[in-house]
Simulated scan of single mutants.
Amino acid sequence: MSRPRFFEISRTFAPGWFAAVMGTGVLALSTRGLAAHWPALLLPAQLLHWFNVGLFCLLALPWLTRWLRFPAAALQTLQHPVQASFYPTFSIALLVLAAQWLQFTSWTGVALVFWWGGVGLHFTFSFVVLFFVFRGEQVTVDHVTPAKFIPAVGLVVMPLAGAPLLAHVGDGLREWMLTINLIGLGAGSMMYLGLLGMTLQRQYLHKPAQGILTPTVWIHLAPIGVIPVSLMNLVEQLPWPALRDVAALLMALVWGFGVWWLVMATLLTLAARAAGQLPFALSWWGFTFPLGAFAGESLRLHALFGWASFLVVATLAWALLCGLWATTAWRTARGAIGGGIFAPHP
């Protein structure tokens, strides 16, 4: 097979590529969090940060080219009952980069640019993607997978960087940013609760998502990991200290569900692999961001409670994340060099 030209890559460029930026970014952030306990991890975390910035720039070129040169193909994907849910990975990648710039540099202006860009694009994607879903008749139970969480995940990701950035803006803008963060967290959390019921219904009553969709079972860990951390970030910006104790308890309870789901997702993935139902695809990046979000939540709970159990779970989740990220990155790079990974999927 000959390597495709940039023209061909852009025309069929899959919207889910930016899950790689999300996964790499959360690996950088969780590695930096663990560097507080093992300082030797600080340099790898910084290298991952800058690598991810370069990765985003590299992937943005064919993504934007597709919209400019092949708008019909891009719009067709936007109306697809499965592929459309992956378009918001671009805006979530911007929000993750905002969190990275805030953690790894002192350039809060750059973090604000990424955050505002991510917020604007993600609200747009959340409305457009779900508008086509609500107005169309193409969605069936076969299309209901945790990938449907992606628009909701982006909404709840907003306060991860958005809340800490409130300290770097004026009072007038601060109020508007706080309001936007509350809207994102509220909308995304309620959407997750509804979609959670739908996906569990499929798990109970319908055939499971298999093949390249197998990794989507891990996406549950993304809202489980992000929602409590975003809630705590916002509570810390409000003038009611008592709310922090309530938020910490809710955070720990949701984390408990995350531990349970981590084991279940592992068992389902191992079963799919044993049955030969786990072919490599870009969807493997679906392992990474959710797992990193859960590791970050565990680290935050360790900081709040001081319990060694939270740190142990965080470290185990991070170690698994490292292995899955390295495997997925290697196979993605090999597929990109050979050109096979750019072949469009039905």
Rank of each mutant, 00 (worst) to 15 (best):
G306K: 05
L121D: 01
L301K: 00
T214C: 11
L47R: 04
L301A: 03
A35C: 08
A14D: 13
A98M: 03
W115K: 11
R135F: 09
G335E: 04
P241H: 11
I92H: 06
H143P: 05
A111Y: 12
G339H: 06
Q103L: 10
I337W: 15
I227A: 10
T315Q: 03
G170I: 10
V263C: 10
V21C: 01
G188F: 05
A274V: 01
T65L: 13
L311W: 09
Q203S: 08
F86N: 05
R3A: 09
L195D: 09
L29W: 02
P164N: 10
A271T: 15
L64S: 11
A209N: 08
L112A: 10
V259T: 09
V133Q: 13
A45L: 12
A248D: 07
E137Q: 14
G186P: 03
M1C: 02
A93P: 07
L193A: 15
P4M: 05
G25Y: 07
Q100V: 01
F305N: 00
T105A: 10
L121E: 08
T179M: 14
W107A: 15
V217Q: 14
H220Q: 11
A19C: 01
A336L: 11
I224L: 15
A281F: 06
E137G: 12
T266G: 03
S85M: 13
P146E: 05
F70K: 08
G25R: 05
T269P: 06
M177G: 08
G16W: 00
L267N: 10
T269W: 10
V226H: 12
G258Y: 07
H206Q: 14
V110F: 13
I227E: 05
G54P: 06
Q210D: 13
S30K: 09
A247F: 02
R244E: 06
P208E: 02
T199D: 06
P15K: 01
P290M: 12
F56M: 11
S309G: 06
I341C: 09
F287K: 07
A72M: 05
G194C: 09
T108A: 10
L55I: 04
L324M: 15
A275H: 08
G194A: 04
T140C: 01
T108K: 12
L196I: 04
M198G: 00
N52P: 08
P239W: 03
A333F: 14
T266M: 09
P146F: 10
P88L: 08
A98N: 04
L196K: 03
G172F: 12
L320H: 06
L182W: 11
M190T: 14
R202V: 06
Q103D: 14
